[in-house]
Design a binder for these strands. Structure first.
Lengths: 117, 117
DNA sequence: CCGTATCCTGACTGATACTG
DNA sequence: CAGTATCAGTCAGGATACGG
């Protein structure tokens, strides 16, 4: 299970092998997962999501914010610092992602078998 | 909950309000749901999925078949008859769809509230 | 540091018509 | 009945460069 969660970030995985998608776009599920351990800054999110361009990452963040899954906080003093964090609703959604990942990992071999033939 | 499941077929709903998507394409979740009560023929699926053109419906069915979620059975005698039915894997996926729908319905008002502001 | 602005491309979707 | 063929449109996603 933990292995699968990590594998979500593999090159082939998002929206190709996982049989589901959270949010309207391709990366929302991963963005939500990146916030599981607490608030993160934009530049911190870019590390695990290195394959996502800033434009697309911004789009995902805006969409998730609009839907109430994450909260954006901006402070300008002493330096510019923008943090994103899950709302209660977002944490609930994250749990659903976990459940889906658990189910997927239990049936991973069946999924791969079906793909091959 | 039952209301939400019905609402999945509403004009505005698929991939616009539901915060998830099953399968690579827009209609897979609904196709799977249409097979919940047993095998269905192509023309039977077209009734609840009236807004899906045959081409797109075929694409969804092929993708779901390739991934092992549904099974396609063709018989030519006495008449041409093609039926689609969920595999065990597909039934499992349907359960996951139900869980997501249940969660969504519990937080429906929060989702709508966030959308408005 | 935290994004925007352009431009571009391919994937997905759809309408319509047609066939074994 | 169960699709396919063809054409067209839209839109999310990505590359690259730039701005407050």
């Amino acid at each position: 299970m933990e292995a699968l969660r990590a594998d979500m970030f593999d090159e082939i995985c998002p929206s190709t092998l996982l049989p589901f998608r959270i949010g309207p776009d391709k990366w929302s599920a991963l963005v939500i997962k990146c916030l599981e351990d607490g608030p993160r800054r934009f530049s911190e999110l870019r590390v695990p999501l290195a394959r996502v361009t800033p434009k697309v990452l911004t789009q995902s963040l805006r969409a998730l914010e609009r839907d109430g899954f994450i909260r954006r906080t901006e402070e300008t003093t002493p330096v510019r610092r923008v943090t994103y964090e899950l709302t209660d609703l977002g944490r609930g959604l994250l749990q659903q992602v976990y459940l889906l990942c658990d189910w997927s990992s239990e049936h991973w071999d069946e999924l791969l078998d079906a793909r091959e033939s």
